[in-house]
Design a protein around this nucleic acid. Structure first.
Lengths: 140, 140
DNA sequence: ATATTTGCAAAGAGTTTGCATCATA
DNA sequence: TATGATGCAAACTCTTTGCAAATAT
């Protein structure tokens, strides 16, 4: 699991290793604060600054992905070894459904030509409501 | 231009009218702060709180659109009478190019079926580099 | 040895809130 | 006149920064 570490020419510190471990243990979308609180303070004392620093680093390394939510905060998810996907976000219950649609790549390709630009990445968020019982139940 | 005001059952205040005017005078993507600074303090004294309140209101009315940028801030653009479009953002020079691709609607339609959800809106941002001379020139 | 990384606490940016005052309907 | 809207400043949240001490290479 920690074999994924590709810290390039950077230093391998216990804090980074520990944070990576925490990240790979979870399968959700988490905020910097979530990660900070997941730290076992008895085991390790990682500061918030280091959490942010490390997240930036992991992001650059492609180990995690960052999403900018509609409340001006960010969440992350591990990325390494997972295929590129996009997100549907239920506005009622905040559930996130991941999906992947190859047609998006066609769109990107043709837009590169039409707009005469080079596209490196994209973010697609679909907003709406899911049909979960639990979700419906929570509606006012 | 101010005929667009559809303040529903809400009050028509001089502050809101003035802000709407400012918004319709500009054709760019602007932040709350930008709008606040665009206020002619001699002419009007609109507080920051009112700017934020009004932007929320205009957003609900569909008069403006809100985008969440990759630095956890928001920008707005007027929406009324403009057709839905998406954005390419140059990571070098921050230029924004708007585009509209009908295939995205097909994707949304089929995802509604596949994911069994109802999609109300979406946000698609493409990131990359444009080929402008001015942009290239600014690269380190 | 030395340049990077850390922790801490303080600063910062953007946004929201509380409340008394004001003003639209 | 009654409720909604405003201005102000303080509070809040998330994130970044400065710096001395610690540490990986």
């Amino acid at each position: 699991m920690e074999d994924y570490i590709v810290l390039k020419k950077l230093r391998r510190t216990p804090e980074r290793n520990y944070l990576l471990k925490l990240i790979y243990e979870r399968n959700d979308h988490f905020g910097a604060e979530d990660l900070f609180h997941a730290i076992d303070k008895n085991q390790f004392n990682v500061s918030k600054a280091t959490v942010y620093n490390s997240l930036d680093l992991f992001l650059e390394c492609g180990i995690i992905t960052k999403h900018y939510l509609n409340n001006n905060t960010s969440i992350y998810e591990k990325a390494y070894g997972f295929k590129q996907h996009d997100h549907f976000i239920c506005q009622e219950c905040k559930k996130i459904i991941e999906f992947c649609d190859p047609r998006l790549y066609q769109i990107k390709k043709s837009l590169e030509e039409v707009l005469k630009v080079e596209i490196n990445s994209h973010q697609l968020y679909l907003y709406g409501s899911c049909q979960d019982k639990a979700c419906k139940g929570s509606r006012k």
